[in-house]
Write a protein that binds this DNA or RNA. Sequence first.
RNA 1: GGCGCUAUCGUCUAACGGUUUAGGACGGAGCCCUCUCAAGGCUCAAAUACGGGUUCGAUUCCCGUUAGCGCUACCA
Length: 484
Amino acid sequence: MINKQVRTRFAPSPTGYLHVGGLRTALYNYLFSKHKNGKFILRIEDTDQTRKVEGAVENLIETLKWAGIDYDEGPDRDGGYGPYTQSQRLNIYKDYAKQLIEKGHAYYCFCTPERLDEIRKKQLAAKLNPSYDKYCARLSKEETQKRVANGEKHVIRMKVPTDGELMFEDMIRGNVTIAYKMLDDQVLIKSDGFPTYHLAVVVDDHLMNITHIIRGEEWLSSVPKHILLYKYFGWEVPVMAHLPLLLNPDKSKLSKRQGDVAVEDYRSKGYLKEAILNFIAFLGWNPGDDREIFFIDQLIKEFSLERVGKSGAVFNIEKLNWLNQQHIKLKTNEDLAIFVKPHLQTAGLINIENKYLLNVISLMKERMIFPQDFVENSIYFFKEPEVFDETAISKHWEKETSQYENLLCERLESLNEYNKTSIEDAVRKLSEELKIKTSKLIHPTRLALSGRQTGPGLFEMMEVLGKEIVVKRLRFAADKFNIE
RNA sequence: GGCGCUAUCGUCUAACGGUUUAGGACGGAGCCCUCUCAAGGCUCAAAUACGGGUUCGAUUCCCGUUAGCGCUACCA
């Protein structure tokens, strides 16, 4: 165990989209293995035929790749331990289940769902814990073989001791003890020939040399079943680490009812993968100091299971938004341009000169949380403002304003150098000569140029817009809003 | 119901028995900067669920209560 290469896995069921909780589990597995220079494996657990969703695997892989969580082995990347899709490993599970039967650790069961239902109801009525009554465990070998040979529908169940308890160590929870009598004679192979999770996970984790099982807390109570199987097979038990759950704002388990849970929803809303990864990494883990902004490389460097907490964490969208803004600020203007372009296009803004776009981005960068914001907030850089803020007009456009703006236009036109410094000089000088406050020029000018009363610094904005457009919009507004 | 897990500001969390008037961040309030909005800086409000132990000393260890969550399938 000491010098073994670390191998972790993310083993989702393809039942739809990738859940943010799933993404965090994948992330932690990824971070842990990469921190230890190990391998990270993607395994598809599609043993429930009734819940299978078409295209879910492709979607899962696509989303994982988008997030940058790269697996070393998986369905489309063989590492010698394949296949990595459980529905392609059916014979393996059957063989191991038969081994268990031969060793006397498992048995065939012919009970119908109806009978199972009935005994469950009876037990519940008698206030007993519902569990299988081990009826078929008492069947003779001859009878069992005969019925199997006759093609009678059956499952394979594992034998669980009736007395005693099992203690195991979890890296996050410490020692956990569960009595055997709490465990059912779990079905291992279903009547359709597919294994249940419990058999498949144990067999695959062993065969794929998984050293650390890092998964959600919902699996904690099934661990004894799994350990029992490891014992029956004579296999070494991997290290276990059960992660705290992700919660809704009301502290219930994170669910679709109370907001988005699919990673792709966040993606399409304009969240950066850097922000999402940073955010979910911190839901249950922290570096132990005050740093908050982390990129994936730093996470790999500093991640440890020892620093993962035990209690559930509320998925707090406000903080995600803040992180998104922080990561946007850290992006280069060039990266942001690529990010923002599709949104410009959907707004009908095409053929925008790249240099111009970069200039606008540098002004708007600190004012955006989402790329959608950018289009909304900087539309006037790309076309004439169509609506003008009514309150701003009444607040800032006074009787003399039109006259002043026309004067300003003259000054701007006569400028040799047109940049934010020369513009500012011109504006301040004019206000001085007019004996008015500079703001009496600044506010109406911003309104005339953008249609709004808020936005980036006026002089920078005027420089980016260019002299020609500025003068044109100012003259237009001077005419349009002229009170006289 | 049974079993298990968990419990620090509204939220994410720090503190690995004493350096703590319990620290940081998001969000909130206020101030500064300033042509507005952001960004940034500063300040404030805000927590150890409750009750017992152990200890010279408990947020930290133990027990109980309470609450939340998970599991209790031929679902994962």
